[in-house]
Design a protein around this nucleic acid. Structure first.
Lengths: 208, 208
DNA sequence: ATAGAAATAGGTATTGTTACTTAAATTTAT
DNA sequence: ATAAATTTAAGTAACAATACCTATTTCTAT
């Protein structure tokens, strides 16, 4: 006779968490489901309750799903992590997926995909709902990864509303150096036209 | 003996909707709760089911909560609308609040505030959870509201990555006219510096 | 040690945005 | 009808970003 399955669900939105617990309970009637609105609550209870699976929201204030997953794996490396997200951008997913998760499920698909994900991670499989999304624009994220350290630093400054002049002063280099970097970044990202780099930086500032 | 209360809940996220229905059912055991993932489904059923209250998500693809609320009021002006949102920015809330809603509840507060909101709207009161948020930065939204029609139109074009030249061609006016409007908008919004208007437009594009 | 990558910085030109001015035509409201 | 607001558009100037180019120094890995 095997032990009762213990599942953690962590999401900062109370209503979403309520729905999440409902779904898990519906699908896994024999499991114990614990819901937490705050990541630190889940961490506090993890040692005592010894969860087998943790279903985490990626986007949470203060401690996001990635950080929380690392903390949980610290407590017990056998805890299986299922990451939930609303984001559908391949770039974001790719940047997150390489950090030791066991499953990745999109919130829109969660009703159908969560039980599959749980079954798979318990068999030590890695599960990704909607994997075809990842094949759509492989190039872009690879190009983003091709940016050098300095180029990344400058792109972050651009996203922070800094002009080339301001960045040059902050880094104590010539404005021509910054302009040159901007050009190289634009070429790598295949951006053209007026303020295209600024628009890109602002739109993607969360993921630099 | 009064009729049974009929409540609609509309949210594009299945899990959130599930949680929402749970809360409503918990709080109002005697009511009939109908949940819809898609606004058009709610519209289709509204004539037959004659809801007294509709709890709507503000941010939905294709048809947002404002549009849906107008359609529902078209079917029956007596339907009370409770708008749910995640946004906490006073600007956004102020721009939405003046469109004939009966209640405004923040998603984070929804567990506690929803039943209060329903009771109030049924008594023909207007209910706002967390009204103190609105008093924080009154000025900015008032300035935003001070924009004229043409200024708004141009701001939307700017947010759509259009240059002054492109906007001038689209509207068949001189580029100097567009530049002049840009200046007037910047002055009204108290924006200064390089590309400040573009940055503002991109950051606020959802609420123009 | 040396080749390759990265960071530095200069030139030159075009285009776009900001910031100010004035002013006429048109629309809107009282 | 008249005043006020809005839209239109001109001039001028400075600053910023894009889009090319070349070239030197510095770091990095084999």
């Amino acid at each position: 006779m095997k032990n009762k399955l213990v599942i953690f669900a962590v999401d900062d939105h109370p209503i979403f968490l309520k729905g999440l617990i409902e779904i898990l309970q519906d699908e896994l009637t024999e499991a114990s489901i614990y819901g937490f609105n705050f990541p630190f609550e889940a961490l506090e209870k993890a040692e005592k309750l010894k969860p087998n699976v943790a279903v985490l929201d990626l986007d949470m204030p203060k401690m996001n799903g990635i950080v929380l997953s690392k903390e949980l794996k610290n407590i017990d490396p056998n805890i299986k992590i299922i990451m939930l997200t609303m984001h559908k951008e391949p770039d974001i997913i790719r940047s997150v997926i390489s950090k030791g998760l066991d499953a990745f499920v999109f919130k829109d698909d969660a009703v159908n995909e969560l039980s599959k994900a749980i079954k798979n991670v318990l068999m030590d499989n890695i599960y990704i709902s909607n994997p075809q999304i990842l094949n759509q624009t492989k190039e872009k994220s690879e190009i983003l990864a091709s940016l050098t350290k300095t180029e990344c630093k400058i792109l972050i400054f651009i996203a922070e509303n800094k002009t080339s002049n301001e960045i040059a002063n902050l880094l104590s280099v010539s404005i021509k150096t910054i302009q040159n970097h901007r050009n190289n970044i634009s070429k790598k990202l295949q951006l053209k036209g007026s303020n295209s780099l600024l628009k890109f930086a602002i739109s993607n500032k969360e993921w630099l």
